[in-house]
């Protein structure tokens, strides 16, 4: 549906389906009039540049094995976890989820989950059948059992499905999903207070880092929750291209959600001139939506590198959270 870019497909430009089961959205023989022409070209160009990086990183991981040195590990993770190592690295610090709580899940929650199953990555061939969709359903149901304050929140479907596609193991997916969502349960609860608080935190950081964004928001009377809520709720899924999402998750899972702030600030900084030029709320929303399919978003290696140079720490984020928590 997104014609400007391959939002999900991460395979070599010549392959039909990638490792995660996402289809290439365009034909191999593409004529100039196709709406996908530009996207296909941009993707091929990106891929040609990125492939040597992937090969080099994989060799380095195989040769050096960074797992025994925390600092080395951090550097290696920033540079991207090779897909062959990803399962293990993502699950590395994830404990089993423990005893099932005795609370029961309301029917309504199960219904909400069911409604979203066919609407979760419809372009993924592995999710096309009811059996796979039911697996994602069970994963989400398990989360609802363990975190009753959330029940089900739209957006979690994408996170659960991607984790499952990547880990290929239902039980461990449940573990990891619960492990990663629990500390952020207030983002997804009935009042989404944690999300709004974190948008306030982001606003404060932007005030120091890219103040023109804040003056634009004030001038147009638009909140970050509306513009960027999805970025945080879905951890950039359905916003940025998949390879970029995976690279962000590598960092986030290892180091914490400061990475969401770093990436958000970097993307807004790159686009700050365009954003400041917006005269209406709809222009602003369009501008924000155009960030996803843009070239800087596709060039994940550079984006992560640049996001790292945003000097924001997890401690700083957590301190601001404390400061604003009373307001929400």
């Amino acid at each position: 549906m997104n014609e400007q870019c391959a939002l999900h497909f991460t395979g070599p430009p010549g392959s039909e389906v990638d490792d995660l089961g996402f289809r290439r959205p365009w034909d191999v023989k593409l004529d100039e009039n196709s709406t996908y022409f530009k996207a296909a070209n941009a993707y091929s160009e990106f891929w040609t540049q990125y492939l040597p990086t992937l090969v080099r990183r994989r060799k380095r991981w195989e040769k050096v094995d960074p797992r025994t040195h925390p600092l080395l590990m951090q550097r290696f993770i920033h540079k991207g976890v090779p897909s062959t190592f990803r399962k293990e690295i993502w699950l590395r610090n994830c404990p089993p989820r423990g005893e099932i709580p005795s609370t029961s899940v309301p029917n309504l929650v199960a219904e909400e989950i069911r409604l979203d199953l066919p609407r979760t990555f419809p372009d993924n061939i592995r999710l096309r059948n009811t059996k796979a969709q039911n697996t994602v359903g069970r994963i989400l149901y398990e989360l609802a059992r363990f975190v009753p304050s959330i029940g089900y929140c739209q957006g979690l479907n994408f996170i659960a499905a991607l984790l499952w596609l990547l880990l290929e193991n239902e039980e461990r997916t449940k573990d990891l999903l619960i492990f990663l969502i629990k500390p952020r349960s207030s983002w997804y609860g009935m009042d989404m207070s944690g999300l709004r608080r974190d948008m306030r935190v982001l606003y404060e950081l932007l005030r120091q880092e890219v103040p023109v964004i804040c003056s634009t928001l004030v001038r147009l009377d638009v909140g970050l929750d509306l513009l960027l809520g999805k970025w945080f709720l879905c951890w950039f899924l359905e916003v940025l291209p998949m390879e970029t999402v995976l690279r962000i998750w590598d960092c986030f899972i290892y180091e914490g959600d400061v990475w969401f702030f770093r990436v958000a600030i970097r993307l807004l900084r790159i686009n700050s001139i365009k954003i400041a030029a917006c005269k209406t709320m709809d222009q602003l929303l369009t501008t924000i939506q155009s960030i996803g399919p843009s070239k800087p978003s596709l060039k994940c290696h550079l984006l992560i590198q640049n996001a790292m140079s945003e000097k924001i720490t997890q401690d700083q984020v957590d301190a601001l959270r404390d400061r604003f928590s009373k307001e929400f």
Binding site: P122, Q154, G229, E238, L285
Partner: peptide
Amino acid sequence: NNSFISTIGIDF
């Protein structure tokens, strides 16, 4: 088509 996804937030 049947490939729509649930709306998160707002769109226009």
